[in-house]
């Protein structure tokens, strides 16, 4: 259970995301084992580590697509996995999670655009119906975002008629349209043909340069991770093996496991 209540803690800055002794099990498999870590507002953090080390699980817990087994996840000083009942923390219900997760957006590996909607509808659906923004405003925002991802001409196209790279750029626009404080990106280029990867990464670079959105990314594009992230966390078996700035982790890793992992992926 939580070690300290951020409402009463006296620290000068409160991290935007805080994992507090988070345990996640699937049946008998322990994926995350009493994990502690924090991410500050505006920080861009890359998660690396071998397959099955729990990177996706962390993002899915933040998006409330999975529920913690124990421990508490905090977002902006507020519990996400739990809620207050009086002074006690109890498991969050759907209503509470829906409210808190409005600050969080996610881009999926497989894009997950809605095939029954046009590009425009995909982007404006959340703002209009989840945030209650007017249709005109949502539409205006959709056009700006499509311009940023360089797909202005596809605004009324069906997702099925777009290439994978184009679909992923729409998915990024869709996530940004919710004006999230936190953006979760799980291997967003690994389902793409190699020649389409650059376009998507360029868009993400722009997002990183022009906004102060906090980003948690899982990626195998090491050069990209180096360029955009402030900090890299190396995971293995649901624990943080090593963390540090990208120059250090990629250039001068301390831990054997990090070295071995980087050696394997950079080959």
């Amino acid at each position: 259970m939580p070690q300290s209540d951020p409402r009463t803690s006296t620290g000068t800055h409160e991290p935007l995301i805080r994992f507090d002794q988070v345990v996640k099990r699937f049946g008998s498999l322990t994926v995350l084992d009493r994990l502690d870590f924090t991410v500050d507002a505006g920080e861009r953090v890359t998660l690396i580590g071998p397959s099955g080390s729990g990177k996706t699980t962390i993002l899915r817990l933040l998006m409330t697509l999975e529920q913690v087994t124990s421990g508490v996840i905090w977002v902006g000083g507020e519990p996400l996995s739990h809620r207050y009942q009086g002074d006690r923390l109890v498991r969050a219900n759907e209503k509470h999670q829906r409210r808190v997760r409005k600050q969080i957006g996610m881009v999926f590996q497989q894009f997950n655009l809605f095939p029954n909607m046009t590009v425009r509808q995909n982007i404006t659906e959340g703002p209009i119906h989840s945030l209650g923004i007017s249709r005109e405003e949502a539409d205006q925002r959709a056009r700006e975002l499509l311009e940023m991802v360089d797909l202005s001409d596809k605004i009324d196209a069906h997702p099925a008629h777009l290439s994978g790279g184009q679909q992923q750029r729409v998915a990024i626009a869709r996530a940004l349209a919710m004006r999230p404080k936190i953006l979760l990106l799980d291997e967003v280029t690994s389902a793409l043909d190699p020649e389409l990867v650059t376009g998507v990464l360029d868009v993400l670079r722009t997002v990183a340069e022009t906004t102060d959105i906090t980003m948690l990314l899982v990626t195998h594009e090491m050069q990209f991770a180096r360029d955009v992230s402030h900090r890299v966390l190396m995971f293995d078996h649901g624990r943080i093996v090593e963390e540090g700035p990208p120059e250090q982790i990629f250039g001068d890793p301390k831990e054997e496991r990090t070295k071995a992992f980087l050696h394997a992926v950079l080959d």
Binding site: R98, R101, L113, F114, H129
Partner: peptide, 21 residues
């Protein structure tokens, strides 16, 4: 299931998820 997960990421209500997606 991925479609439902996308609706969660967009904070859609149950009703809206059913009706729109």
């Amino acid at each position: 299931k991925a479609q439902v997960e996308a609706t969660i990421a967009l904070s859609m209500s149950w009703w809206r998820r059913m009706r729109a997606v």
